[in-house]
Simulated scan of single mutants.
Amino acid sequence: MGSKMKKILACCCGIALMASLAGCGGAKDKAGNAPAQEKKLVIYTARENPVTELVIPKFKQKYPDYDVQVMTMGAQQILERVRAEKNNPQADFWWGGTQAALMTAAKEGLLEAYKPTFADKIPAMYKDSQDRWYGEMLLPEVIMYNDKALKKEDLPKDWDDLLDPKYKGQIIIRGVLPSGTMRTIYSAMIYRQDPNNPQKGYDWLAKLDANTKEYATDPATLYIKLTREEGKLSLWNLQDVLLQREKHGRPLNFALPASGVPILVDGVGIIKGAKHSEAAKKFYEFLFDEQLQIELAHKTYQIPTRTDISKDKMPDWYKGLNLKPLNIDWLVLAEKEKEWMQYWDQNIKGKGAK
């Protein structure tokens, strides 16, 4: 072989080797190991704006080089999106998911196992046994009402009172299927009747539907309609009621049903196959920081799951809160929620008022 041909072959081999090395480097980038990849964080969240607007700037202040992108949607919509993107995840961190949704996601292999440094501060009932999700806060589900339109003595005293014909046309409900909160409340009402015979719960929801004036497309619409007295009552979570009342001056208040309330565990998790997993872990640890959790309790009315936060550091509304939880098997609720809610949507919604 001539020297010229040898030089050509050597050059080709060199180019092939460089391409191979570059390909290996590219593979690392795609796996999220390159520093440039870790400077971005994509979050899917069901949190309200007052919460994200408090937390995200603080995170950016601590990690100024990170490009943080936040997409807000309903908790159930997050599950559906993460499920659809399973083979090519577009987000890294799931912030704000119902216990049922996170259990479902974990079962479907949509969440990455990660044991955070605060793991032993969260009770076993508020986290996944395989560290695929952790509850960040507790969300008591309550009766929300316009306290200018309804006096306390005219309020429902318990869940069953909502079925009284005197409340017909006064109830506005947030659209159920896209909302993790509403799916949990409605599933809890079915479970409360008889978890082994959902028909009893369906009958109960049919009576509630008969009293329901309309289903609001989103939380903002729900708040506006209640403020305008287009309706007087709803079912919603305690945190958002307090936020709307204290931060936005809406005439909204809450009542605690005598038999107890579903206490939703609202949690977080790292999405399986996240392209920016290290950034997600940093946000995980940041979000559960004790001082931040105390601040969120004072400013956004969150009830933390951490057991090591002194009650003396918590706000007065928290100290005076006397919650009676409904006895619910959340594993059963997670397993049955989809079936129950599909039946409600196809057979009950909008039919009772006719």
Score class of each variant (00 low, 15 high):
Ala210Gly: 09
Leu321Val: 15
Gly2Gln: 12
Asp65Phe: 00
Arg192Tyr: 11
Asn196Met: 11
Gly2Ser: 14
Glu38Lys: 08
Asp194Trp: 06
Asp120Ile: 05
Gln291Tyr: 07
Gly32Gln: 11
Glu339Trp: 04
Asp161Trp: 14
Lys148Tyr: 12
Lys6Glu: 11
Trp344Met: 07
Asp128Thr: 08
Lys351Asp: 00
Pro198Thr: 04
Gly267Asn: 03
Lys58Met: 11
Trp133Pro: 01
Asn88Ala: 09
Lys319Leu: 05
Gly74Met: 12
Ser20Lys: 05
Arg183Cys: 03
Phe118Asn: 02
Tyr63Ser: 00
Ser310Glu: 14
His248Asn: 13
Ile43Arg: 02
Met137Ala: 12
Met1Cys: 07
Ala113His: 04
Lys58Glu: 06
Glu335Asn: 08
Gly96Ser: 08
Pro315Trp: 11
Glu112Leu: 09
Leu9Ile: 13
Glu214Pro: 02
Ala206Val: 05
Asp154Cys: 13
Glu80Trp: 13
Lys166Thr: 08
Gln99Arg: 10
Ala19Cys: 13
Asn253Trp: 12
Leu111Ile: 02
Leu177Trp: 07
Ala106Glu: 15
Gly175Asp: 14
Lys39Arg: 15
Ser179Ile: 13
Tyr126Gln: 10
Gly96Met: 11
Lys148Asp: 07
Pro123Tyr: 00
Thr221Asn: 10
Ser259Ala: 08
Gln76Pro: 03
Thr181His: 13
Lys200Phe: 13
Lys157Ser: 09
Lys7Thr: 13
Trp344Val: 05
Gly97Gln: 03
Ile78Asp: 09
Glu80Asp: 12
Leu226Thr: 06
Arg228Cys: 05
Tyr66Phe: 11
Ala36Asn: 03
Pro325Glu: 12
Asp209Met: 10
Ser234Val: 06
Leu21Ser: 07
Ala105Glu: 06
Leu296Gln: 04
Thr184Val: 07
Ala36Arg: 05
Ala75Glu: 04
Lys272Ser: 05
